[in-house]
Design a protein around this nucleic acid. Structure first.
Lengths: 155, 155
DNA sequence: TATTGTTATACTCTATAACTATA
DNA sequence: TATAGTTATAGAGTATAACAATA
């Protein structure tokens, strides 16, 4: 999908401009580049994207199974398996909630926290070459525009 | 990972600046937003990211199994299964290569080509709200900067 | 009754290993 | 011998369905 720009049919839309199509293609290409780097780093540590997201969310929080599942848009059964495997590896721990005896809180272990810190370091190292071709001025502009896009997006 | 900015240790690196860290965080957040949209559209059609990439690559090409696997960074056995399932669904077809009798060429069926066209339409529709908050000037700048980044990246 | 979480089951995606056919 | 592809097998990630314990 990100490897080429096949002939496009945009005539039936009315809202599209060729300029926007270029921007959208660039966004998709950039997204694949960034995700490839993140996925590769995860693979080196035997971590799926979902598990990396779970660990990242738990960095400064302690959450219930259901909240975690909602956060990632997964079913609670899926989260059960994900957390069970992560717990077996010593990355997270479960503890019964004191507010609701049906609920289970999940938190990072010390080992899990160390791993998250390491992942962040490796992520920055891996992504730095991606922006290596831009000068300081362009980097500032790109950061501003992306943040405006993120903050202002509809849907 | 994309949901917050935990305290970072960048002191051991020497190459990092706080500004770059902001840019890298914005790139990651934007990548997750874009991939979420793409993944959701794929899920609506029962397509994994890998299968979407395969179909996209085959849009204007006919490739061997091994080339496809190399393109996606997967093992050839994995590609065998992926293509077998896609073929069963009528999205792609296999044909023996005439140059090398060991090899198998894969190409889109008509149904597969229609699906790719539809995916591209839906992708553009889904991503348009993401850039809705930016004016025409900002869109042009963002497209230029992303393209410069993509073209100029190291690694 | 409704909610929280787990277990049972099935399918996709991925990999390693072993195999067949061709080069 | 090396390469192209498939099949066999195993494990992670995902979902639907059924269940237990608690609210």
């Amino acid at each position: 999908m990100q490897h080429h720009a096949p002939p496009q049919d945009t005539s039936d839309n009315g809202q599209d401009s060729p300029r926007d199509a270029h921007l959208l293609d660039a966004l998709v290409t950039a997204a694949f580049i960034v995700m490839a780097a993140i996925t590769r780093i995860g693979a080196e540590h035997d971590l799926s994207l979902s598990l990396m997201r779970v660990l990242g969310i738990l960095w400064d929080r302690r959450l219930r199974m259901t909240d975690l599942a909602d956060y990632l848009g997964l079913e609670k059964q899926t989260m059960s398996g994900l957390i069970a495997r992560a717990e077996k590896r010593g990355l997270v721990a479960r503890a019964p909630s004191r507010e609701d005896r049906r609920a289970t809180d999940v938190h990072l272990t010390e080992s899990g926290a160390l791993l998250v810190a390491e992942l962040r370091r490796q992520g920055q190292t891996a992504l730095r070459p991606v922006i290596a071709g831009l000068g300081p001025e362009d980097r500032r502009h790109l950061a501003d525009l992306l943040q405006a896009m993120i903050a202002g997006r509809a849907g």
